[in-house]
Simulated assay, not measured.
Amino acid sequence: MSHSEKVSHSPRGRGALHGDRSDKGSSPLGTAIFAALRILDPVLQYGILLPGPTSLAGPILGLFGGTPLPPESAPVALGLSPWRLTLLGMSLLGSLKGIFYLFYVSETKMPVKTALLVGIFKAFSTTVNSLMFCAAATSATSSYIPDFATGWHPILSIACAIFTVGITVETVSELQRRSFKKHPSGRGVGKVYTGGLFRVARHINYGGYTIWKAAAGLAASGWGWGGLTLLWLLAEFRRRGIPALDAYCEKRYGEQWDQFKRRTRWKMIPFLY
């Protein structure tokens, strides 16, 4: 039930990473591949976000007839403006979150096929965000002009705040659940965790994931792209991720899960879904 880097930009990825939840075996190669792909993702995003002739954005956008965004302000670190540096930071935190989950929280085996599928898909999803920002026609800075002196804009502050809330909710909820499962009283069949943030929504960790991914979309290309990201993830979870997880939990926890569903109305995000 947690975000086995839940796995991907989509519930599909999340479900894939969890795989067979009853399989607690180890897969050193799969784990190593997944970790390596997640580490390489921010490196790729840096190559795309870096402005100038060495940027990967120009050649990639050129394949689709796009025009790269010129540097919107002076760089502050790593040759990046505050906006580009923020997007890189979001990518890095997302990757670290996935690696942390895999090594510390997850107990499910990571097959090689799943590691490749999830790692590549997540790199693709963050690459789309980076390219949306770097394209002159879709960049958030085309609609929200950053301050000339600081390179900042209030919309970026909003995106950072939403991102922080989302990734904190996801991480804290998963750690709460892990602590329960490690405690003797939480082990065994029929021991479903209903405390902590899970009192708010049955799959609150998925909700947190959805929120921070939408915030990254907002930072990349504005409210439209951020909203589409939110709606797409909600639709994917509703169509595939949540039904599959509910079926697993009903089989494993039985009546306790049914009681939890009756007691906790919201599935992922309170007042929304």
Rank of each mutant, 00 (worst) to 15 (best):
K267I: 11
L228N: 00
W83G: 14
S106R: 10
F34K: 04
T67I: 12
G188S: 03
V76G: 01
K181D: 00
L78V: 00
S4A: 08
E170R: 01
S10D: 03
L69N: 00
P70T: 10
P154R: 13
I167E: 01
A137E: 14
K97E: 15
P59E: 10
Y144W: 15
I167F: 01
L93Q: 06
P71E: 14
I60F: 11
L69E: 15
Y206E: 07
S2R: 04
I211C: 02
L88Y: 04
S22A: 11
L80Q: 05
V7Q: 03
G66H: 06
W83L: 12
R14V: 03
R187M: 12
K122I: 14
G19A: 07
R238E: 13
A149E: 10
K181G: 02
G208V: 06
D23R: 11
S179P: 01
Y104Q: 06
L87H: 04
R202L: 03
V105N: 11
G226M: 05
L69G: 01
S81G: 15
P111N: 12
A136I: 11
V118Q: 01
M90H: 08
F103M: 05
G241D: 07
F198Q: 04
G47H: 06
S8T: 09
R12C: 02
H183G: 03
I158C: 06
A115V: 06
R12Y: 12
R12N: 05
T150I: 07
E236M: 13
P154A: 10
T168I: 09
L40Q: 00
L131R: 00
L69P: 00
D41W: 14
F133E: 05
S73R: 09
V128E: 05
R240K: 13
A215V: 07
G89D: 08
T54H: 11
S8N: 13
